[in-house]
Amino acid sequence: MPHYFFDTRSDSHLVRDESGQHLDGMDAVRNEAARGLADLAHDAIPRASRGELAVEVRDEADQAVLTAALRFEVAVVAAKIDWIETGSARG
């Protein structure tokens, strides 16, 4: 199975994947990159009001093969909303 490397980027901070993964085909690569991006978002979004996240996939020849990217922004659009202040919502 071909070997792919998943570099991850949070704004300008790049972490290079040195170990890589053996994956069978582009569907698997796409799935792994998307899951990785979702995990990056899970940890990053609560901590920042804006940012750019990406998973950049390379093959063994160091050629870029796929990018999954997300730009996020959390902005207050009304001065005061009571249900945000209470911090919990029950349905």
């Binding site: 998943f6 792994e32 990785g36 995990d39």
Partner: peptide, 22 residues
């Protein structure tokens, strides 16, 4: 392996790789 760590922590292997490196 990082995939085993991913399966143990409910994370993707991609995020395990990044977090372990950190």
């Amino acid at each position: 392996t990082q995939t085993e760590l991913a399966d143990a922590t409910g994370l993707s292997t991609v995020h395990v790789n990044r977090s372990i490196q950190q």
